[in-house]
């Protein structure tokens, strides 16, 4: 059995679902961040897969690499925010950091 586009999409969908589940259910900010990363990776996987199987050109894979770099930068920023959050509230539980809630 050769690995086709379907497998990639399935893995990507699985990754997305896991990421979404993580995003919705977890209250830890770091975990939410991980969920977001999972969703991002699912999207990047799709980009690479579709680029390879449907288009035949490397544009999509270049996008994916670009996205990975961005994701790294984004993770740095996000983690920095989480760190600050922790400093301010001594917790990273988003249910408790509700300062702005009316």
């Amino acid at each position: 059995m050769s690995i086709g586009l379907g497998h990639f999409v399935a893995v990507s969908a699985l990754l997305f679902s896991l990421g979404l589940f993580c995003l919705i259910t977890r209250r830890n900010a770091v975990a939410i961040l991980m969920g977001i990363e999972l969703i991002l990776n699912a999207a990047l996987l799709n980009l690479a897969a579709f680029s390879r199987y449907l288009h035949g050109q490397p544009d999509g894979q270049i996008f994916a690499v670009f996205g990975i770099v961005l994701a790294a930068a984004e993770a740095v920023v996000a983690l920095a925010i989480v760190l600050q959050l922790y400093r301010a509230f001594r917790t990273v539980d988003t249910a408790e950091t509700t300062e702005l809630k009316g």
Binding site: L23, A95, T98, G102
Partner: peptide, 17 residues
């Protein structure tokens, strides 16, 4: 109605999904 506006993105995402 105001009660829906929890301010928690997670619940919004949940609703969205």
């Amino acid at each position: 109605l105001r009660r829906l506006q929890t301010g928690r993105i997670q619940s919004y995402v949940f609703g969205l999904t």
